[in-house]
Design a protein around this nucleic acid. Structure first.
Ligand SMILES: [Mn+2]
Ligand SMILES: [Mn+2]
Ligand SMILES: [Zn+2]
Ligand SMILES: [Zn+2]
Lengths: 136, 136
DNA sequence: TTTTAAGTGCAACATTGTTGCGTGTTGGTT
DNA sequence: AACCAACACGCAACAATGTTGCACTTAAAA
């Protein structure tokens, strides 16, 4: 899968900026913050990046990776997500040492109970710990 | 348990401001954002509130309630948390309608696997859905 | 090639996080 | 009761991030 395919699959115009952003996601296989992306993009406008990420999220190219850090991160969707719904229910691993966050496709959010009257819509699992590199 | 006991149990000076903040947590039995608290406090200085929450969190009176919203929330610790460690491993329910967040003491974070080489330290579970009031 | 809906870049403002510092307060000591 | 030192408070200031409006540029369909 390349950035051009991703854009056309999701009915998005192909622009140089969007391709650059997607290429970074494809290169780093992990969740990235807006700051992470800015560092890779060198020249870029933060508002354009902000709106690009928002659009990608709405159209189902990327999903928010909640990791408990103060910074919002996004990661590429594995597939079949679109403008109608996201289907990423995997856990996210947040390394407390290097602050990197990884999608853990193998760990799905478990079915959980909620108190009476509460309607469960989706669940998120965040795992904190040390990644393979930082655990040495 | 009242606010004065909570402060002395955690080796914190008793001040009027801290008592007011704790009273709000005791009154609303849910996770509160800094903005929620400011609305209840009427007259208050946001920097003092920021530092008060930070101190409370460090001393084990309150814990961060990660709920995936853009706003950090805090909730009262159930007990036995102190300056050394927090022991809150329950799930947090975030209502997508009213944006309120509740500690679900009954739902503990499940033991989860991580990829080889990754060291798990703690896990967080966020449940999104509709609370009893909003599910009508 | 023309047309137009969409994307980009900049200004501007809001919100939140964070630190420094002078002043006021708490709780223990004299 | 008065005193003192550590701590807490309130304000200024700045950083980072989120968000919108608007004029200009560009993509892709006609
Ligand atoms: Mn993910
Ligand atoms: Mn909680
Ligand atoms: Zn790491
Ligand atoms: Zn609700």
């Amino acid at each position: 899968m390349n950035s051009i395919q991703l854009l056309s699959n999701h009915q998005l115009r192909k622009t140089q900026f969007r391709e650059r952003v997607l290429d970074i996601f494809l290169r780093y296989e992990r969740a990235l913050s807006q700051k992470d992306l800015e560092e890779q993009l060198h020249e870029s406008d933060r508002i354009t990046l902000y709106r690009t990420l928002k659009t990608f999220e709405e159209k189902g190219l990327i999903h928010k990776a909640i990791d408990g850090s103060d910074r919002l991160k996004y990661a590429l969707c594995a597939g079949h997500c679109d403008v109608h719904a996201h289907h990423d229910h995997h856990a996210h691993f947040h390394c407390v040492t290097c602050e990197r966050t990884f999608c853990i496709e193998d760990v799905q959010a478990p079915a959980l109970d909620a108190p009476p009257g509460f309607e469960v819509e989706s669940t998120h699992v965040i795992i904190n710990g040390r990644c393979a590199e930082c655990a040495h």
